[in-house]
Nucleic acid binder design. Structure first.
Length: 883
DNA sequence: ATTGAGACTTGACGCGAGGGTC
DNA sequence: GACCCTCGCGTCAAGTCTCAAT
């Protein structure tokens, strides 16, 4: 369980490694480690726990380590004292003069670039996908899976053995056929048709493959709504207020520029120019040279991914093809500036039923207590959580009691939590649950139908004439706040939301939804077509924040932005080499701010770290790249870094990686003279980082790297590892790739409660089979000598079998054992790895769809019904699509 | 330049349905 | 038919990022 043992950097020796950043990633062992290490961490963190006074039980929280991991940070984030003055300096100087930042260089760079770049009209993707433009993760994965141990100059001698986890998992596939019934009356196929904008753009994509990026831009730009183009522009240029035209929405507070590109802005030069195929068509070795440090010069001059977007960004009103999508009646949402829709109808939201008092009395100091329905409701909220880990957390109890006492009133007999006994209510609740469980199938069905009937009208919205599913039309019921990790507000009462908390957004001429609670009314009704939400209310726990009701993931609006996200990530592919050369050069910059940006970008690129926004004190103390504290990164000579921090959702990120020496040194410098709790990147925050990234590529932000790395890893692995074989084998390849991505993204899940029992069961079965095997072998030996088999374990005589029959049986048993051991291994491997999140959020569905088409794998084996709906826009991608 | 509001995406988890296994 | 397990799906918390106000 030694730390290092679990963290094996995968080292890859890509051709460009000598100039590129170190290649590493966490292997799944490392990721799995989380749970295991939680104990370790717990121990080490306990010293800080005093302040929180937790009495966490030894058991792991649903999040495993989380609860106990959250160490009481010794120093508050504010104490880190982010310098502010320095940063301005930093941000202006970040970009090397010779390269990217100053606008004035753009033209030159552009020209240089154009000269350097070959024109490319051919397919953009390099069929062989040289690794240069691939994320490390991909390179790792590929090398890992091929079980080659590669090393790079900087890492020689430190190469770790390839973890077994890299071996192909023969994951058992149990995908069900997606049921044919679509969620609405509209068949899937026609749904696609309905989603014009999305669909049409899909079409475009297919053809994009053959086009140079610049054309893609044009296309995108021309596509009604969207595009990263506009988004990029948005990020670079603020939209003049005058451009905001939301059909006279005076209510619109902050119309988002998003899709709209003011004409002026559109023509403004943008920094980088997508570098088409220049390198895709060049052998890796040459590319390396080109971009090598030696080439720093050239890279620094030309690299500056500059671009004149103006022309390419102009909406060229590219024709939609006469395909099925053109049939759609849908009006392109982007017809107006920042406009998301033209007409919007919906029925508002549905509220949870009012509280029904049960009358079960809890005990206080051993005596039953009378509670009003309001008081009982809150008591019940706690009672039903009695056997969760929350109920054992001091903060949770404290917050709960504080809020409950307000409802109990000053003079209530209940004062101390210790004297409260919620058991009667808890048991009542258990009985209710049991009753529900015991209902007959018919009763359950009837109940379900009844619910559906009530909800049906809220489930749909009509957006620009198209019926679309609404995502979360149910208002959140009251309850106790279940913050993750050591959230300071956990246990607080999340009060009931009423109509007058809710703001409705609806089309101007559309009928305002009737308030479902008689005698009450909506807080406000807006007609803001620059946003996509249908309703919102203020979060009762944090009134500064909002809870929105949006359309479902399967809607055109969501599909469209999904597609834009992946297009942006694909665009990064064309810039990545320059970006890497850029930050590699800045590792040793004299300007500390520049160095910090370089190192942070490196970490985000290589480790898929999140950006790491600042957080308030009333949130769980988690970090991302920009908010890493000095204690989150340990230097392990000669050039390893050990990361250990709680990231989003208080999920532990624990990883030891080999890095380039300059990075190692830089981190050491950043830590110098700082105390625990201080920011590692004190000259940096996410806005500076993203501002810098935007200088390198239009619209580039930190999170794009995650999408890029995930998708390109999948694409690379699928294409490298898929062999001829049956569908099951191909799916195994897919799952293997999916797993690698999940590991890169640190997508974890808590170990299921029954995991160890399941493993034991498998062990038992394997043991049984092995015993059987031994028996069979003995019988075989005897049979060969003409002797009858020995009696069975039960003492009964066995059938006399021929040696051939016994040999067959032995082979069968061996196969069974093998399969079970494989299953066991997979189960263990995926114990803490969640595959779903990456599939839903990071993997460009077109990669999967195209791969399925190429390899004749039914798409239903990869995407379930909801993913099929969500990714409707990707379904008609050309089989040759590569990310 | 900083801050905070606002909008939207990403994320883990829990529950229930349904299929497989004993 | 009981039990177990997986998977789909909904929930809602927690991120990212932009923009306007200060």
């Amino acid at each position: 369980m030694a730390v290092d043992a679990c963290i094996k950097p995968k080292i890859i020796d890509d051709d460009d490694d000598d100039e590129g950043p170190a290649v590493f990633k966490r292997n799944n062992t490392a990721s799995r480690k989380n749970q295991v290490n939680s104990e370790l961490k717990k121990a080490s963190s306990q010293r800080n726990d005093g302040s929180s006074g937790k009495h966490v039980s030894g058991s792991l929280s649903p999040n495993g380590q989380n609860s106990s991991l959250q160490k009481g940070k010794a120093v508050s984030k504010t104490s880190a004292g982010k310098p502010t003055a320095a940063s301005s300096n930093a941000s202006t100087s970040i970009a090397d003069k010779s390269r990217c930042s100053p606008q004035k260089n753009l033209a030159i760079n552009n020209m240089q670039k154009q000269q350097l770049n070959k024109p490319c009209n051919g397919p953009k993707e390099d069929p062989d996908d040289s690794d240069d433009d691939k994320p490390l993760s991909f390179r790792l994965a590929t090398s890992g899976s091929s079980l080659k141990i590669k090393s790079q100059p900087g890492t020689k001698g430190h190469g770790s053995p390839v973890p077994s986890s890299l071996q192909m998992d023969k994951t058992k596939i149990t995908c069900k056929k997606s049921s044919a019934d679509s969620e609405d009356e509209i068949p899937l196929s026609s749904k696609f048709q309905l989603k014009t904008n999305v669909g049409s753009s899909v079409k475009k994509y297919d053809s994009d493959e053959e086009k140079p990026l610049i054309f893609k831009f044009q296309q995108n730009g021309s596509s009604k709504k969207d595009n990263e183009l506009s988004k990029s522009l948005k990020s670079l240029n603020k939209r003049p207020m005058s451009d905001v035209n939301t059909s006279g929405q005076s209510l619109v507070k902050k119309p988002k520029l998003s899709e709209s590109i003011p004409a002026k802005v559109k023509q403004a030069p943008i920094k980088s120019e997508p570098k088409e195929d220049d390198e895709d068509n060049i052998p890796i070795s040459q590319r390396l040279k080109k971009s090598a440090p030696s080439d720093n010069k050239s890279s620094s001059t030309k690299k500056t991914t500059t671009k004149v977007v103006s022309s390419s960004f102009k909406k060229t009103s590219k024709k939609l093809k006469k395909d099925k999508y053109s049939k759609s009646t849908k009006v392109p949402p982007s017809s107006g500036e920042g406009q998301k829709w033209t007409t919007l109808e919906h029925n508002g939201v549905i509220f949870p039923p009012p509280y029904k008092p049960h009358g079960v009395k809890m005990l206080y100091n051993g005596q039953p207590v009378d509670l009003t329905p309001e008081q009982e409701e809150v008591a019940t909220m706690f009672a039903v959580m009695k056997d969760t880990e929350y109920a054992t957390k001091q903060k949770f109890v404290e917050n709960f009691m504080n809020d409950w006492k307000v409802i109990l009133g000053k003079n209530h007999v209940i004062k101390k939590f210790e004297l409260c006994d919620f058991t009667p209510i808890y048991e009542w609740h258990q009985r209710e649950k049991e009753k529900k469980k015991q209902m007959s199938a018919e009763e359950k069905k009837a109940l379900k139908e009844e619910k559906l009937k009530q909800e049906e009208k809220y489930m749909w919205a009509i957006v620009d004439g198209v019926k679309e599913k609404v995502g979360n039309f149910r208002v959140e019921p009251p309850g106790l706040f279940r913050g993750r990790g050591e959230h300071p507000k956990m246990g607080k009462l999340k009060r009931r939301i009423r109509p007058n908390d809710i703001t409705i957004n609806i089309g101007k001429g559309a009928p305002v939804p009737e308030c479902p609670i008689p005698g009450e009314r909506w807080k406000e009704v807006k007609h803001d077509n620059t946003v996509t939400w249908l309703a919102f209310w203020n979060d009762p726990i944090n009134p500064k924040e909002f809870k929105y009701v949006f359309l479902a993931a399967s809607s055109s609006l969501k599909g469209q932005s999904d597609k834009e996200k992946y297009e942006k990530a694909r665009l990064l592919k064309d810039y990545i080499k320059d970006i890497r050369a850029n930050y590699t050069r800045d590792f040793s910059s004299k300007d500390i701010a520049k160095r910090q940006i370089a190192v942070a970008t490196y970490l985000i690129d290589k480790l898929a770290l999140r950006a790491g926004n600042e957080k308030d004190d009333d949130e769980a103390d988690t970090v991302g790249c920009c908010t890493l504290k000095v204690e989150n990164v340990e230097l392990i000579p000669p050039n390893k870094l050990q990361f250990d921090f709680l990231g989003k959702d208080s999920i532990r990120y624990f990883n030891t990686v080999e890095v380039e020496l300059p990075v190692y040194k830089a981190i050491g410098q950043f830590k110098e003279g700082k105390k625990e709790g201080e920011d590692l990147f004190d000259k940096l925050d996410t806005s500076k980082l993203n501002a810098h990234l935007k200088e390198l590529m239009p619209g580039l932000t930190a999170k794009v790297f995650r999408t890029y790395n995930a998708s390109i890893t999948l694409d690379g692995m699928l294409n490298k590892e898929t062999k001829d074989g049956d569908v099951a084998e191909k799916i195994t390849v897919y799952q293997h790739a999916n797993k690698e991505v999940a590991i890169i993204c640190n997508h974890q899940r808590s170990v299921s409660k029954s995991h160890s029992a399941q493993m034991n069961r498998l062990d038992d079965k394997i043991k049984e089979l092995k015993e059987l095997l031994d028996e069979l072998k003995t019988d075989l030996a005897r049979a060969k000598k003409g002797k009858p088999p020995l009696k069975g374990a039960d003492g009964k005589p066995k059938r006399n079998l021929t040696p051939e029959a016994l040999e067959r049986k032995i082979a069968q048993a061996n196969a069974k054992i093998e399969k079970m051991e494989r299953d066991k291994q997979i189960k263990e491997d995926l114990k803490t790895v969640a595959l779903g999140t990456s599939k839903i959020n990071y993997l460009d569905p077109r990669i999967s769809v195209a791969w399925c088409k190429r390899h004749e794998v039914p798409i239903e084996k990869i995407f379930n019904k909801s993913l099929l709906a969500k990714f409707a826009w990707a379904m008609d991608v050309d089989p040759s699509f590569r990310f």
